[in-house]
Amino acid sequence: MAGKPGKESQLLSQRQLQELSARYQQMQSQAEALSQQVNMLQITIRDVETALTTVVALKDETAGKETLVPIGFGSFVNAKLTNPDKIIVGIGAGVSVEKNVDDAKSLLDNRKEELTKYHEKLNENLTKFVQELQNIQAIMQQQAQLHQMQQGQQPQQPMRAG
């Protein structure tokens, strides 16, 4: 069953077909989970990019600059920059660390790179899954055709009145 769908022309047994169908369903749900993960990663990557843009933009600002701090739902409070040269970066487990702009930038850059690599890897996996799903689909279609043909050869086909 591992071969190409095109050259295999014998009928699979009922059991083999069931196995194939079960495999298809399993792979489909795996592919869905994978696709969700890919989307989440995409969002995270965009989040890192936002942080990076802000860090870079703040680099040239001086202390005392007026700014607005988001409090959610498109709303803001007024604030003044006190330490534009210090960035506080989350390192996971509820811990954040104060870094200077260059260190913060390189940390975020690294994070972005890692995430992008992972994203690519997952995307590759997803493509493989989709290909395999298509393969199985092709086999199943071919089986359906074979089945029909075999039934057509049998004399039990109803005669059609002219």
Binding site: G92, A93, G94, V95, S96, V97
Partner: peptide
């Protein structure tokens, strides 16, 4: 947690750290 711990290890003793 392990990654965060490793990250802390790289810092100076007097680094400013915040806990959520």
């Amino acid at each position: 947690t392990e990654l965060a711990f490793e990250e802390l290890d790289k810092l100076d003793v007097d680094a400013v750290v915040y806990r959520a």
